[in-house]
């Protein structure tokens, strides 16, 4: 399985882009959370921002590994994008719950669009192609002859 070249150049390149977006999304969430900036349409959320940065580190590891170790790139980017997508789904539930509560309590400020504001969703959307591509590669990896050896 050790292969020094990576034929999926575009997918590998996309990993770099996802790494950067995840990092930026995390960074902005933290800045908003600390009220340093307030201009972007992104949910202020310090712990969430830290988790985004953690995920961007995993993506970065995938990028580094990808230079020499193809399975390493596949596994790290697969797990990172899976986590990102799962967390994005959770964020929708969390924000959805919060918005619904404010509506039910009759407060007028409720803004349904805030459901879309968590940084996880933005980073998650960008990671979807990577997840789909990499999971195909992952299953291909597993068609190894190990069990038949």
């Amino acid at each position: 399985m050790s292969n020094t070249t990576y034929p999926h150049k575009y997918l590998y390149g996309w990993t770099v882009i996802v790494t950067l977006t995840t990092f930026i999304a995390g960074f902005l969430s933290i800045l908003e959370g600390a009220r340093i900036i307030t201009r972007f349409f992104i949910l202020p959320d310090i712990p969430g921002g830290c988790i985004l940065i953690l995920i961007s580190f995993i993506f970065a590891t995938a990028v580094m590994k990808g230079r020499s170790d193809r399975p390493g790139w596949i596994s790290f980017s697969y797990v990172a994008s899976l986590l990102l997508l799962v967390f994005a789904g959770c964020s929708v539930l969390i924000e959805g719950g919060n918005v619904l509560t404010t509506i039910m309590e009759g407060e007028e400020e409720a803004n349904i669009l805030t459901i879309l504001s968590p940084g996880f969703i933005w980073a998650g959307i960008i990671a979807i192609p990577l997840y789909l591509g990499v999971s195909k590669l992952l299953y291909k990896c597993s068609c190894r002859g190990e069990c038949c050896e």
Partner: peptide
């Protein structure tokens, strides 16, 4: 044994039980 489709647990374990990333994840 023939060829089959398995989610390769080894590859996923490498990340989820990683020295640095395991606990934060």
């Amino acid at each position: 044994c023939t060829m089959g489709q398995v989610l390769p647990a080894d590859l996923i374990d490498q990340v989820l039980t990683h020295r640095f990333y395991g606990i934060p994840i």
